[in-house]
Amino acid sequence: MKAETNLVNSVNLKTNLLYIPLVIVLLLIPLGGEYITYLTGLALLFGIAALSLNVLLGYTGLLSFGHALFFGCGAYTAGMLVKHLSITSIEILVPTSIITSVILALLVGIVCVRHTRIYFTMLTIAISQLFYALAHKLRPITGGDDGIRIYSTHVFGHEVASITEFYYYILVAFFLCLFCLRIILRSPFGLTLQAIRDSELRARFAGISIIKYRLAAFVVSGLFAGIAGSMYALFLGQISPDDVLSVMRSGEFVAMTLLGGYTSFIGPIVGSFVFTYLKAVISSAALYWYLVFGILIVSIVIFVPTGLMGEIEKRRRTG
């Protein structure tokens, strides 16, 4: 079926069934203790962010090196509402983060999507660095270098008591995002994005308004990154510009996507899990994480440019 079409009607039931054991494992993660739960929660949130980045990279063919901007927008929206207005309800914070991320993505997108290739990449770096610098310096609003602490969060009036409880909220958000993105990317809209990626010229002469579709992809991408950022702020209880807005964070999202495979829908999630666990293991063993990370990126780029899932899918297809 794969060779025929990417649209919804060809989703293979069998491959979907393969995911059931994985879902069960994710549900049982809290049995592994608080640390594993915490790590998996992070991996899920970074997974959403990397997935959202891949709407641009894998599907639209635009490399953003400033995606932390939208992750940070979600995080700071939640953080600032807690700090200044003492709102601690997730059901208010996350939707508000969605709204601010969409607005920001729309404004930034209008500027960025007129450019492609390295110019697009440079613009995303410049704009995210601008906000990073502002977050650093506008101390009264953003808390400056120290960032913002969030001491407690509520769901419909009930205080979230443990990491485990929050983990399940993340899991719900994760599956919702996954579901929505899968539908979006397998829709005519998603197909149109891929067409623009492969041949802007042909897409234009198929009657498609390129800029509008790139902008829409940019906004979709920003929206889901915003959700991830917002939940990240509440999950960790602490944010700072270096953690959520820096170019290093943007680079990590790119690395996760590359690692898992930008040609595959679930590649970025695989990437975020491998990345998060590997980083935890290597850092805790007091080894040189950056060295491993760097060598990993270099090797992937040279030897398996389509990433882990890209390679697996290729092998599955060829036999």
């Binding site: 680079g251 690395a255 994480w289 060295l291 990370f293 760097g294 060598i295 270099v298």
Partner: peptide
């Protein structure tokens, strides 16, 4: 980009 990290460590 990957080389940044290799050099760093």
């Amino acid at each position: 980009y990957g080389m940044i990290f290799v050099f760093m460590d």
